[in-house]
Simulated assay, not measured.
Amino acid sequence: MNVDLFDFDLPAERIALRPVRPRDAARLLVATGDGAPFGDRHVRDLPQLLRRGDVLVFNDTRVIPAQLEGHRGEARVGATLHKRIDLRRWQAFIRNGKRLREGDCIAFPSEVQAVAEQRHEDGSWTLAFSGEEPVEVLLERAGQMPLPPYIAGKRPTDAADREDYQTMFARQDGAVAAPTASLHFTPDLVAALDAAGVARETLTLHVGAGTFLPVKAQDTAEHRMHAEWGRIDAETADRLNAARGAGGRLIAVGTTSLRLLESAAGEDGVIRAFEGDTSIFITPGYRFRAVDGLMTNFHLPRSTLFMLVSALMGLERMKAVYAYAVGNDYRFYSYGDSSLLLP
Protein backbone atom coordinates (compact mmCIF):
# COMPACT_ATOMS: atom_id res chain seq x y z
CA MET A 1 0.00 0.00 0.00
CA ASN A 2 1.11 3.55 -0.63
CA VAL A 3 2.51 5.07 2.57
CA ASP A 4 0.80 8.39 1.74
CA LEU A 5 -2.53 6.73 2.62
CA PHE A 6 -1.45 6.78 6.28
CA ASP A 7 -0.70 10.50 6.46
CA PHE A 8 -2.74 12.99 8.46
CA ASP A 9 -2.38 16.51 9.79
CA LEU A 10 -1.26 16.84 13.40
CA PRO A 11 -0.78 20.29 14.97
CA ALA A 12 2.45 20.50 16.97
CA GLU A 13 0.57 21.63 20.06
CA ARG A 14 -1.17 18.24 20.26
CA ILE A 15 2.15 16.52 21.15
CA ALA A 16 2.37 15.92 24.91
CA LEU A 17 5.71 16.79 26.50
CA ARG A 18 4.74 15.61 30.00
CA PRO A 19 2.27 12.99 31.25
CA VAL A 20 -0.85 13.88 33.20
CA ARG A 21 -0.99 13.14 36.92
CA PRO A 22 -2.28 10.86 38.23
CA ARG A 23 -1.50 8.57 35.34
CA ASP A 24 -5.00 7.09 35.08
CA ALA A 25 -6.48 10.59 34.66
CA ALA A 26 -5.45 10.50 31.00
CA ARG A 27 -8.30 10.68 28.53
CA LEU A 28 -9.45 7.53 26.73
CA LEU A 29 -11.11 7.62 23.32
CA VAL A 30 -13.29 4.52 22.86
CA ALA A 31 -13.87 3.35 19.29
CA THR A 32 -15.67 0.23 18.07
CA GLY A 33 -15.74 -1.33 14.66
CA ASP A 34 -19.50 -1.02 14.20
CA GLY A 35 -19.49 2.69 13.38
CA ALA A 36 -20.99 3.72 16.73
CA PRO A 37 -20.17 7.24 18.00
CA PHE A 38 -16.84 7.61 19.74
CA GLY A 39 -16.78 7.62 23.53
CA ASP A 40 -14.91 10.27 25.53
CA ARG A 41 -13.80 8.61 28.74
CA HIS A 42 -10.76 8.42 31.03
CA VAL A 43 -8.35 5.56 31.58
CA ARG A 44 -9.68 5.15 35.12
CA ASP A 45 -13.03 4.14 33.53
CA LEU A 46 -11.59 0.89 32.14
CA PRO A 47 -13.27 -1.36 34.75
CA GLN A 48 -16.66 -0.16 33.46
CA LEU A 49 -15.67 -0.52 29.80
CA LEU A 50 -14.43 -4.12 29.95
CA ARG A 51 -16.22 -7.34 30.82
CA ARG A 52 -15.64 -9.90 33.54
CA GLY A 53 -13.38 -12.56 32.03
CA ASP A 54 -11.57 -10.18 29.70
CA VAL A 55 -7.77 -10.22 29.92
CA LEU A 56 -5.46 -7.24 29.65
CA VAL A 57 -2.04 -8.27 28.33
CA PHE A 58 0.87 -6.08 29.47
CA ASN A 59 4.50 -5.85 28.40
CA ASP A 60 6.81 -6.08 31.44
CA THR A 61 9.93 -4.79 29.69
CA ARG A 62 11.92 -2.16 31.58
CA VAL A 63 13.43 0.85 29.83
CA ILE A 64 17.16 1.17 30.36
CA PRO A 65 19.05 4.51 30.14
CA ALA A 66 20.24 3.65 26.66
CA GLN A 67 20.99 7.15 25.36
CA LEU A 68 24.72 7.96 25.50
CA GLU A 69 26.62 11.12 24.60
CA GLY A 70 30.35 10.80 24.01
CA HIS A 71 33.38 11.68 21.89
CA ARG A 72 35.51 10.05 19.25
CA GLY A 73 38.61 12.20 19.41
CA GLU A 74 37.35 15.77 19.09
CA ALA A 75 34.07 14.81 17.45
CA ARG A 76 30.89 14.49 19.50
CA VAL A 77 29.01 11.23 19.02
CA GLY A 78 25.56 10.19 20.24
CA ALA A 79 24.55 6.55 20.60
CA THR A 80 21.13 5.02 21.20
CA LEU A 81 21.39 1.32 22.03
CA HIS A 82 18.52 -0.59 20.54
CA LYS A 83 19.20 -4.34 20.61
CA ARG A 84 21.38 -6.53 22.78
CA ILE A 85 23.68 -8.89 20.90
CA ASP A 86 25.41 -10.51 23.91
CA LEU A 87 26.67 -9.56 27.36
CA ARG A 88 29.05 -6.85 26.14
CA ARG A 89 27.83 -5.94 22.66
CA TRP A 90 24.80 -3.91 21.60
CA GLN A 91 23.52 -2.73 18.26
CA ALA A 92 23.17 1.06 18.30
CA PHE A 93 22.05 3.96 16.16
CA ILE A 94 24.83 6.54 15.99
CA ARG A 95 24.37 10.28 15.63
CA ASN A 96 27.18 12.15 13.88
CA GLY A 97 28.78 8.83 13.01
CA LYS A 98 29.58 9.36 9.32
CA ARG A 99 33.31 9.44 10.03
CA LEU A 100 33.20 6.51 12.42
CA ARG A 101 35.43 3.61 11.35
CA GLU A 102 35.59 0.02 12.54
CA GLY A 103 37.91 -0.16 15.52
CA ASP A 104 37.32 3.43 16.65
CA CYS A 105 36.93 3.94 20.40
CA ILE A 106 34.11 6.13 21.70
CA ALA A 107 34.55 7.66 25.16
CA PHE A 108 31.37 8.21 27.17
CA PRO A 109 31.00 9.84 30.63
CA SER A 110 32.10 8.11 33.85
CA GLU A 111 34.97 6.31 32.10
CA VAL A 112 32.62 4.19 29.99
CA GLN A 113 34.15 3.21 26.63
CA ALA A 114 33.01 1.22 23.62
CA VAL A 115 34.63 0.10 20.38
CA ALA A 116 32.78 0.49 17.09
CA GLU A 117 33.04 -3.09 15.85
CA GLN A 118 30.86 -3.30 12.77
CA ARG A 119 28.63 -1.09 10.63
CA HIS A 120 25.35 -2.61 9.46
CA GLU A 121 23.41 -2.04 6.24
CA ASP A 122 20.82 0.13 8.02
CA GLY A 123 23.55 2.48 9.26
CA SER A 124 23.57 1.17 12.84
CA TRP A 125 26.72 -0.10 14.54
CA THR A 126 27.73 -2.92 16.85
CA LEU A 127 29.32 -1.38 19.95
CA ALA A 128 31.53 -3.55 22.18
CA PHE A 129 31.79 -2.11 25.70
CA SER A 130 35.08 -2.30 27.57
CA GLY A 131 35.56 -3.72 31.06
CA GLU A 132 33.87 -6.46 33.04
CA GLU A 133 30.85 -4.69 34.54
CA PRO A 134 27.47 -5.55 33.01
CA VAL A 135 26.52 -3.05 30.33
CA GLU A 136 23.33 -2.23 32.27
CA VAL A 137 25.50 -1.08 35.21
CA LEU A 138 27.53 1.11 32.87
CA LEU A 139 24.35 2.63 31.45
CA GLU A 140 23.00 3.49 34.89
CA ARG A 141 26.21 5.43 35.42
CA ALA A 142 26.60 7.10 32.04
CA GLY A 143 23.30 6.94 30.18
CA GLN A 144 20.07 8.89 29.97
CA MET A 145 16.50 7.76 29.41
CA PRO A 146 16.00 7.56 25.63
CA LEU A 147 12.99 9.83 25.20
CA PRO A 148 11.36 9.74 21.77
CA PRO A 149 12.80 12.31 19.35
CA TYR A 150 9.51 14.25 19.20
CA ILE A 151 9.91 14.96 22.93
CA ALA A 152 13.70 15.11 23.21
CA GLY A 153 13.80 17.63 20.36
CA LYS A 154 11.66 20.05 22.38
CA ARG A 155 13.08 19.75 25.90
CA PRO A 156 15.99 18.05 27.69
CA THR A 157 15.60 14.77 29.53
CA ASP A 158 15.43 15.32 33.30
CA ALA A 159 15.13 13.41 36.55
CA ALA A 160 11.33 13.17 36.31
CA ASP A 161 11.62 11.10 33.13
CA ARG A 162 13.34 8.29 35.05
CA GLU A 163 9.98 7.59 36.68
CA ASP A 164 7.56 9.01 34.12
CA TYR A 165 8.92 6.90 31.25
CA GLN A 166 8.69 3.61 33.15
CA THR A 167 5.54 1.52 33.61
CA MET A 168 4.42 0.03 36.91
CA PHE A 169 4.83 -3.43 35.32
CA ALA A 170 8.50 -2.96 34.33
CA ARG A 171 10.54 -5.98 35.43
CA GLN A 172 12.79 -7.17 32.60
CA ASP A 173 15.67 -4.85 31.61
CA GLY A 174 16.20 -4.33 27.91
CA ALA A 175 13.85 -1.80 26.27
CA VAL A 176 14.99 1.51 24.83
CA ALA A 177 11.43 2.76 24.43
CA ALA A 178 8.55 2.37 26.85
CA PRO A 179 5.42 0.33 26.08
CA THR A 180 3.57 3.60 26.48
CA ALA A 181 -0.03 2.36 26.74
CA SER A 182 0.93 0.84 30.10
CA LEU A 183 2.19 4.18 31.41
CA HIS A 184 -1.43 5.06 32.25
CA PHE A 185 -1.89 2.34 34.88
CA THR A 186 -1.77 2.85 38.64
CA PRO A 187 -2.11 0.47 41.60
CA ASP A 188 -5.59 1.88 42.28
CA LEU A 189 -6.70 1.20 38.71
CA VAL A 190 -5.30 -2.33 38.80
CA ALA A 191 -7.17 -2.99 42.05
CA ALA A 192 -10.41 -1.75 40.46
CA LEU A 193 -9.84 -4.02 37.44
CA ASP A 194 -9.26 -6.98 39.77
CA ALA A 195 -12.52 -6.22 41.56
CA ALA A 196 -14.34 -6.08 38.21
CA GLY A 197 -13.09 -9.54 37.26
CA VAL A 198 -10.74 -8.32 34.51
CA ALA A 199 -7.65 -10.52 34.48
CA ARG A 200 -4.13 -9.50 33.48
CA GLU A 201 -1.15 -11.32 32.02
CA THR A 202 2.36 -10.19 31.13
CA LEU A 203 4.78 -10.97 28.36
CA THR A 204 8.13 -9.43 27.47
CA LEU A 205 9.06 -7.57 24.29
CA HIS A 206 12.17 -5.41 24.47
CA VAL A 207 11.16 -2.38 22.40
CA GLY A 208 13.96 -1.10 20.16
CA ALA A 209 14.75 2.38 18.91
CA GLY A 210 13.68 1.22 15.46
CA THR A 211 10.10 1.91 16.58
CA PHE A 212 10.82 5.63 16.06
CA LEU A 213 12.41 5.34 12.63
CA PRO A 214 10.39 6.89 9.80
CA VAL A 215 9.06 4.77 6.97
CA LYS A 216 11.23 5.90 4.05
CA ALA A 217 9.78 3.53 1.45
CA GLN A 218 6.87 4.73 -0.67
CA ASP A 219 5.17 1.34 -0.54
CA THR A 220 4.62 -0.64 2.66
CA ALA A 221 5.83 -3.80 0.91
CA GLU A 222 9.31 -2.28 0.69
CA HIS A 223 9.65 -1.37 4.38
CA ARG A 224 11.68 -3.66 6.67
CA MET A 225 10.98 -3.72 10.39
CA HIS A 226 13.81 -3.94 12.92
CA ALA A 227 13.77 -7.18 14.90
CA GLU A 228 12.93 -7.08 18.60
CA TRP A 229 13.37 -9.86 21.15
CA GLY A 230 10.33 -11.19 22.97
CA ARG A 231 9.11 -14.04 25.16
CA ILE A 232 5.82 -15.65 26.17
CA ASP A 233 6.14 -18.67 28.47
CA ALA A 234 4.04 -21.78 28.04
CA GLU A 235 2.01 -21.22 31.22
CA THR A 236 1.00 -17.71 30.14
CA ALA A 237 0.08 -18.95 26.68
CA ASP A 238 -2.11 -21.66 28.21
CA ARG A 239 -3.95 -19.17 30.43
CA LEU A 240 -4.55 -16.81 27.52
CA ASN A 241 -5.96 -19.62 25.37
CA ALA A 242 -8.17 -20.81 28.24
CA ALA A 243 -9.54 -17.32 28.86
CA ARG A 244 -10.37 -16.87 25.22
CA GLY A 245 -11.92 -20.32 25.07
CA ALA A 246 -14.18 -19.33 27.97
CA GLY A 247 -15.43 -16.29 26.06
CA GLY A 248 -13.09 -13.65 27.42
CA ARG A 249 -11.51 -11.07 25.15
CA LEU A 250 -7.76 -10.64 24.93
CA ILE A 251 -7.04 -6.89 25.00
CA ALA A 252 -3.44 -6.06 24.21
CA VAL A 253 -2.17 -3.09 26.21
CA GLY A 254 0.05 -1.46 23.62
CA THR A 255 1.15 -2.36 20.13
CA THR A 256 4.20 -4.17 21.54
CA SER A 257 2.01 -6.68 23.38
CA LEU A 258 -0.16 -7.06 20.28
CA ARG A 259 2.79 -7.71 17.98
CA LEU A 260 4.21 -10.41 20.23
CA LEU A 261 0.83 -12.10 20.72
CA GLU A 262 0.33 -12.20 16.97
CA SER A 263 3.87 -13.52 16.49
CA ALA A 264 3.18 -16.35 18.93
CA ALA A 265 -0.21 -17.35 17.50
CA GLY A 266 -0.63 -19.95 14.81
CA GLU A 267 -3.05 -19.93 11.91
CA ASP A 268 -5.47 -21.73 14.22
CA GLY A 269 -5.49 -18.78 16.61
CA VAL A 270 -3.78 -20.76 19.38
CA ILE A 271 -1.07 -18.85 21.25
CA ARG A 272 2.07 -20.91 21.86
CA ALA A 273 5.22 -20.35 23.88
CA PHE A 274 7.56 -18.00 22.07
CA GLU A 275 11.12 -16.83 22.63
CA GLY A 276 13.21 -15.03 20.04
CA ASP A 277 13.17 -12.16 17.60
CA THR A 278 10.10 -10.86 15.83
CA SER A 279 9.95 -8.37 12.99
CA ILE A 280 6.23 -8.74 12.32
CA PHE A 281 4.85 -5.84 10.26
CA ILE A 282 1.06 -5.50 10.43
CA THR A 283 -0.73 -3.52 7.73
CA PRO A 284 -4.32 -3.47 6.42
CA GLY A 285 -5.27 -6.88 5.05
CA TYR A 286 -3.63 -8.71 7.93
CA ARG A 287 -5.86 -11.33 9.59
CA PHE A 288 -5.60 -11.06 13.36
CA ARG A 289 -5.25 -14.37 15.18
CA ALA A 290 -4.80 -13.66 18.87
CA VAL A 291 -6.26 -10.33 19.96
CA ASP A 292 -9.79 -9.00 20.30
CA GLY A 293 -8.92 -5.40 21.09
CA LEU A 294 -6.15 -2.93 21.75
CA MET A 295 -5.47 -0.13 24.17
CA THR A 296 -2.90 2.22 22.65
CA ASN A 297 -1.73 5.82 22.56
CA PHE A 298 -2.00 8.02 19.47
CA HIS A 299 0.73 7.47 16.89
CA LEU A 300 2.71 9.40 14.30
CA PRO A 301 1.47 10.03 10.76
CA ARG A 302 2.87 7.56 8.22
CA SER A 303 4.19 5.34 11.03
CA THR A 304 4.14 1.54 11.21
CA LEU A 305 2.02 1.84 14.36
CA PHE A 306 -0.68 3.87 12.64
CA MET A 307 -0.62 1.20 9.93
CA LEU A 308 -1.13 -1.45 12.63
CA VAL A 309 -4.19 0.23 14.17
CA SER A 310 -5.57 0.78 10.67
CA ALA A 311 -5.24 -2.96 10.06
CA LEU A 312 -7.18 -3.63 13.26
CA MET A 313 -10.00 -1.13 12.76
CA GLY A 314 -9.93 -0.22 9.08
CA LEU A 315 -8.09 2.72 7.55
CA GLU A 316 -11.09 5.01 7.13
CA ARG A 317 -12.31 4.31 10.67
CA MET A 318 -8.87 5.14 12.10
CA LYS A 319 -8.61 8.33 10.08
CA ALA A 320 -11.95 9.33 11.59
CA VAL A 321 -10.70 8.40 15.08
CA TYR A 322 -7.60 10.55 14.67
CA ALA A 323 -9.49 13.48 13.17
CA TYR A 324 -11.83 13.34 16.15
CA ALA A 325 -8.89 13.15 18.57
CA VAL A 326 -7.19 16.17 16.99
CA GLY A 327 -10.42 18.17 16.93
CA ASN A 328 -11.20 17.36 20.56
CA ASP A 329 -7.81 18.20 22.03
CA TYR A 330 -6.54 14.72 22.78
CA ARG A 331 -2.83 14.64 23.60
CA PHE A 332 -0.64 12.58 21.26
CA TYR A 333 2.33 10.21 21.48
CA SER A 334 4.22 8.64 24.38
CA TYR A 335 3.14 11.00 27.17
CA GLY A 336 -0.27 11.60 25.66
CA ASP A 337 -3.78 10.20 26.03
CA SER A 338 -4.96 6.74 25.05
CA SER A 339 -7.56 4.91 22.99
CA LEU A 340 -9.49 1.67 23.43
CA LEU A 341 -10.03 0.03 20.04
CA LEU A 342 -12.59 -2.78 19.86
CA PRO A 343 -13.04 -3.99 16.26
Rank of each mutant, 00 (worst) to 15 (best):
Q166P: 05
Q144R: 13
Q118L: 13
G103F: 03
L100E: 10
N59A: 06
N59P: 09
R99S: 14
Y150F: 02
I151G: 05
V137E: 14
E140T: 03
R72F: 13
Q113N: 10
S130W: 02
K154A: 14
D122C: 11
D60Y: 04
Q166V: 08
R155A: 07
G103N: 12
P146K: 06
V57L: 05
T126L: 13
A107Y: 01
R171I: 02
L87C: 05
V57P: 06
A75N: 15
P149F: 00
D104C: 06
A66C: 08
M168P: 04
E163T: 10
V77A: 03
S124H: 08
A107G: 02
A170N: 02
V63P: 08
V135C: 05
A66S: 11
R95H: 12
A116W: 05
D161I: 08
F58G: 03
G153P: 13
M145L: 09
W125F: 05
F169G: 04
K83A: 15
A92D: 07
G70L: 09
D86G: 08
D158V: 06
Q118S: 09
A152H: 04
A75Q: 15
F58W: 09
R162K: 11
D164G: 02
A128F: 06
Q144K: 12
R72M: 15
P149S: 09
V115G: 04
G153H: 10
F58E: 04
G70W: 03
E121R: 06
P146N: 04
P109H: 06
V77K: 02
T61S: 13
T157R: 08
E132N: 06
V135Q: 03
P149D: 08
G97F: 06
S130H: 09
M168Q: 12
A114E: 04
D104A: 09
A114N: 04
C105N: 10
I94Q: 03
L138T: 01
A128H: 10
E74S: 14
R119H: 07
P109N: 06
G97K: 01
W125Y: 04
G143M: 07
C105W: 12
W125H: 01
K154C: 10
L87E: 15
I151F: 00
